[in-house]
């Protein structure tokens, strides 16, 4: 009887130990799941890839106190791989598209002062390295999915003011939304620092319509 009792307790103990083990295991799994939220177990292959990109943009240059300028731009970008690309040419033409903010008139009215040294941007020409570390997808109002990438730009070029050319360096960040294999939209911000008679800066907001030439040469999730 004692032997039976010992056997029964031993069985119950084993069952309890097993249950505890299960519970701890489940708890640990739950904790791990909680802690590991957002950790990646699989990254899907890309649905869209860029090859040779031709784009046109509408841009806005808001930083000048005397003029707010609009610009039209053209770009050619050569995409080496998913991470690196070279924006070989970016030309923004802003001549004739400046709007007077009224500051000159205000200064004339208030203090009888007429500033003379306020050159407008005529155009900007630069070449940029493009790095595209982020690629992903977004849901639009929880109902549709669009694919996009985020990129950064770093480059050198020149800014032609009304008076002269000045060398310039620029940095920027942008986001591309893919509409089809060949068509995408880009929105971007660039900051230009030009070095001439003094330091000057230009802020550039652009919205581009892009055509991906030779898209079929690059394998994507659909074409693999």
């Amino acid at each position: 009887m004692q032997h039976d009792s010992h056997r029964t307790w031993s069985g119950a103990g084993r069952a309890l130990a097993f249950c505890l083990l299960l519970a701890v295991g489940a708890g640990a799994q739950a904790a791990e799941d909680f802690l590991e939220q957002g950790k990646v177990y699989a990254i899907q292959p890309r649905a869209f890839r860029m090859n040779q990109e031709f784009s046109i943009s509408a841009a806005f240059l808001p930083l000048d106190a005397f003029y707010k300028s609009f610009a039209v731009s053209g770009h050619y970008v050569l995409h080496f791989n998913d991470l690196w690309a070279w924006e070989a040419v970016h030309l923004s033409f802003a001549k004739y598209m400046a709007i007077d903010t009224g500051l000159k008139k205000q200064m004339m009215d208030d203090w009888d002062v007429s500033p003379t040294d306020t050159p407008k941007v005529d155009y900007m020409l630069d070449t940029n390295l493009m790095i595209k570390p982020l690629y992903g997808k977004m849901s639009v109002m929880n109902s549709r999915i669009i694919f996009m990438e985020t990129y950064f730009l770093l480059g050198l070029g020149t800014i032609k003011y009304e008076t002269a050319f000045f060398p310039a360096a620029n940095a920027g960040v942008g986001m591309r939304v893919f509409l089809t294999n060949t068509i995408s939209l880009r929105s971007e911000v660039r900051y230009y620092a030009s070095f001439g008679e003094g330091f000057d800066s230009v802020l550039y907001f652009g919205l581009s319509f892009c055509y991906n030439a030779f898209a079929e040469d690059k394998p994507t999730a659909k074409r693999q």
Binding site: V40, Y135, G136, K137, S139, N142, M148
Partner: peptide, 8 residues
């Protein structure tokens, strides 16, 4: 209006 994820 947009919620998404991007791989870095």
């Amino acid at each position: 209006f947009f919620y998404g994820k991007q791989s870095f």
